[in-house]
């Protein structure tokens, strides 16, 4: 491939190539189907962000009932107590179990919230300038993807407790409506994170390089206009 000094930042797309995301075979960019594994080839997923936002929206939607409705319904002989996630954590703090409360708060509140924020940030930063370097954002994306599966730990706890504590009349623990919501929220968040095309992170670098030659404008709307 011939290139200029700019070749240092030459991307496959600029080189007219596209890589299969399944078997990583590189094909000319014209091909729409991998000749080796049969997967469809796309230089960029045009609906990636759209799907990200769609899943993200559903995840956030389910996150509200997950926090408003009780997570656990604990029924003992004389009383039934239902507690939300935060309410239960606060109860634990009142009872002195700060460590457990911190774990719950981190796993059930902090991490999901952080994921929402991270995904939204990544999705937004795919189109906008940001102070964060592309490498950091890539790391952030990988972190979100990695942590996502651990978010189900709350749901697991509820499932295990519900299965174990079924002492008929004396005491029983049942999952509350929040547990389902929470599980759905986590699932949709993970889908949202998965829907994100991490290559978009790097597009901005090309875009940032390109204006340096044709124009000096720094305004992104104008840049986007140039694409259209």
């Amino acid at each position: 491939m011939s290139g200029t000094g700019q070749l240092a930042a030459l991307t496959a797309r600029e080189a007219g190539l596209v890589g299969c995301r399944r078997c990583t075979r590189v094909w000319p960019i014209e091909r729409t189907e991998c000749g080796r594994c049969g997967a469809s080839l796309e230089s960029r997923d045009p609906k990636s962000l759209s799907r990200v936002w769609a899943w993200w929206t559903v995840g956030v939607m389910f996150y509200f009932p997950a926090n408003l409705y009780p997570m656990l319904s604990t029924r003992t002989l004389l009383s039934t107590s239902e507690s939300t996630i935060v309410g239960g954590a606060i109860d634990l703090i009142h009872h002195g179990s700060i460590g457990i409360a911190v774990v719950i708060l981190v796993a059930s509140v902090l991490i999901p919230m952080a994921k929402f924020l991270c995904i939204a940030f990544l999705a937004l930063s795919a189109r906008r300038n940001t102070d964060m370097s592309a490498g950091s954002r890539q790391h952030l994306y990988e972190l979100v993807e990695y942590v996502g599966r651990w978010s189900m730990i709350d749901v697991f706890v509820v499932a295990i407790l519900s299965a174990l504590v079924q002492l008929n009349v004396a005491a029983s623990i049942n999952p509350g409506p929040a547990s389902l919501s929470f599980a759905l929220s986590v699932i949709f968040t993970m889908l949202s994170a998965q829907a994100f095309d991490s290559r978009l992170i790097w597009d901005r670098i090309e875009d940032a390089d390109k204006p340096a030659t044709p124009s000096t404008g720094a305004s992104s709307p104008r840049q986007e206009d140039a694409y259209s």
């Binding site: 797309r13 609906k47 759209s50 799907r51 769609a54 939607m61 829907a195 694409y227």
Partner: peptide
């Protein structure tokens, strides 16, 4: 080679994923 680069400013419908049905359904 002339690469057809689709504009990022495609119509909303084009850009919208079918996944959006899920939040709407919810």
């Amino acid at each position: 080679p002339d690469v057809t680069i689709a504009s990022s400013r495609r119509s909303l419908w084009d850009r919208a994923s079918v996944v959006w049905l899920v939040p709407f359904a919810a």
